[in-house]
Design a protein around this nucleic acid. Structure first.
Length: 122
RNA sequence: GCAGAAGGCGAGGCAAUCGCUGGUUGGCGGUGGUGCUUUGGCAUCAGUUGUCGACUGGAGGAAAGUCCGGGCUCCGCAGGACAGGAUGGUCGAUAACGUCGACCGGCCGCGAGGUUAGGGAAAGUGCAGCAGAAAGCAAACCGCCGAACGAUUCACUUCGGUGGAUGCGUGGCAAGGGUGAAACGGUGUGGUAAGAGCACACCAGCGGCUAAGGUGACUUAGUCGGCUUGGUAAACCCCAUCCGGAGCUAGACCAAACAGGGUGCAGAAGUUGUCCGCUUCGCAAUGACACUCGGGUAGGUCGCGAUUGAGGCGACGAGCAAUCGUCGUGCACAGAUAAAUGGUUGCCAUCGAAGUGCUUGUCAUUUCGAGACAGAACCCGGCUUACAAGCCUUCUGCUGUU
RNA sequence: GCCCCCAUAGCUCAGAGGAUAGAGCGGUUGCUUCCUAAGCUGCGUCUGCGCAGGUUCGAAUCCUGCUGGGGGUG
């Protein structure tokens, strides 16, 4: 368990996206930018959900797909390391070049950092 | 062997494991309708949702750019014309095209071949800087000309003139020079004062006619004519042909919330207004609740994938070919929507580099490295552009050997 | 998804078939000043659709195809 990635673990509605990008806490390194917002407690209390945003300037469709897959894969394999109950919105850092290993390293670290900032801020 | 020309193939494979997603199917849970009911539930139906299994499918030759053409959908529409846009050798192919095939003409190349928006300039309008005399209709800068009329001058003279010379004027000419991208046919002979299609011969080119070949573009041959008519229409334009508009976020359906209309509750209570002020009553309005109506937002379902599509494959036939016809064939499930087709590992192929072995090879083996361009979004036919390693076919020129 | 526009000197723009490609700002040489600013004076850089091809005698300009950037709409 913890290795699957069904639809309930994804951020789907565009309202949640804008909410997270406007009001959420964020953390970034040279590779990823992570926005965090507390999850909708009524519907899904103890689930971490992931949403990915890739701007068109990142590259062509193949490169953007690759970023998505890498981010999704690293979330899928490591979401046990991330505290539950939050929505994450992940975006590649502007100008960063895709690289599977560094994404894998950076995602949980950035997520925890952003969650810490969120709880400190509130 | 070297140098080329044209075209094609190809888009690594097999496993293990962890995932994503569509379909079919089964179990379990939630939800809805119907029936029974002891109001606890039970049965059944189908839809939906979640989850756990099983089986099965899951990117391309360009999926890309969105440059053309269609299907499909909605809107508009009596017919025609104008405007606007597109196309432009001929014949054929096609649902259609600006696409494709074959052929014709022009240009480039020794050649295989390549390339070509290739109708009309004697309908009209416009444009051509600089240079040059002159840029479109003839004209004349340097120049040439003493045949004609003047002028000047010389000689002779029978004093009327005659014969020369001078390009100065009126004039004649366009051969030569030079400019330019382009200068009103070229060469030769005759001719002349000098010259000129002025005449003739040959050549180039234009137009008409005739004959032959071809469906045709056109080609070949003959003959006649004026002797020559410039370029540019991807300048306006003329001619011929084609085009109604918007697009799957098209469009159809369901439909929260807020606001609005109607009915009920019900004219009971509350609030506000009304009669000079207060109270009560009456009247009017309003709010709340329930039901309902239309439009329809958020959102959702369909459209949407073999259930009929200009489909694929195979055979036969027609055609030079593009392509078409007939027959056969369960050959055929990609359908996401914050958007699936992936990650990791192993093995085997391919290519390159370095090394090792001996059996020096079109060998074996070890290590390292490389594999592009690129991601369906309603669907087709084209075009254009991008594309690694590697491989194949046909043809041309030159050179060498036999 | 659909539609439209733009690309010229380091920057902002003009020029829209004729060859010298320009203007302003900027840079820079010199003059002026005790020095700077301002002013005057020259200068050059770089040059041209971003690229490729075509039409034309000639293309920054016309046509075609690509490349990059920006905007609108739903």
């Amino acid at each position: 368990m913890g290795q699957t990635f069904p639809k309930t673990r994804r951020v789907i509605s565009s309202q949640r996206f804008t909410l997270a990008l406007r009001t959420g806490a964020c953390a970034a390194d040279g590779c990823l930018v992570v926005f965090v917002v507390p999850a909708d407690s009524e519907r899904s209390p103890n689930v971490t959900r992931l949403g990915i945003t890739i701007p068109k300037k990142t590259g062509n469709a193949v490169i953007r797909n690759q970023w998505k897959r890498w981010i999704r894969e690293s979330f899928r394999t490591q979401c046990g390391n991330i505290p539950a109950g939050y929505d994450l919105i992940v975006r590649p850092k502007k100008g960063a070049r895709g690289d599977w290993k560094s994404i894998q390293k950076s995602l949980p670290v950035m997520a925890r950092k952003a969650i810490k900032r969120l709880s400190a801020g509130s």
